[in-house]
Amino acid sequence: MKNIIKSGLTVFIIATIGTLLLAWVYSFTSPKIEEQKFLTIKNAIEEIFPNQTEFNEIPEYKNKVIENNINIITIYKVELQDGKEGFIIRATYSGYGGKVESLFGYQDQNCKGVYVLEHSETPGLGSLITSKDFTNQFINKNLKDPFIVKEDVQAITGATISSRAISNAIKIIGKFYLENIYGGNK
């Protein structure tokens, strides 16, 4: 009995100290992590819409589940230099190794680009969904296209599931965009 209490207490004390230490590290890394995340979002938006002048969040589309496993986090409206507007949809969807978080750029009836923010796909295979060689094929792709891997979408060798996940997400979120945002704006 005495042993159990002693063992339990030791684990308890060590776990508490460990947690406190982590809380302390988290307290000064988390603002930095958020800042980095905002910076990558900003850079990604500039990459998808090089002629952007400013972007703002549209508040009514926050945290919206649109289909199984596809979850819109936020939508940004991007003002472009030529007076037109584009939209960036930040969403999560299921990949091969877990959740993938990406930015999807849409303008008119086209996909303007994809930028993967976070993923846990297999390094060296599925992680290539972040590479330009893969994502560039979606630039200016019409949303009416079938978006079927190995037909009109080039898959990454050895990472068909990851490739399919991203192209499905573009298609489904694109459909949502056409029905709710693009149509509603006209």
Partner: peptide, 17 residues
């Protein structure tokens, strides 16, 4: 956490490992 805060690109490419 430190990698995510100071070396975001590295932490991104290492993923879950």
């Amino acid at each position: 956490l430190v990698m995510k805060a100071y070396f975001p690109s590295l932490s991104k490419s290492m993923g879950v490992f």
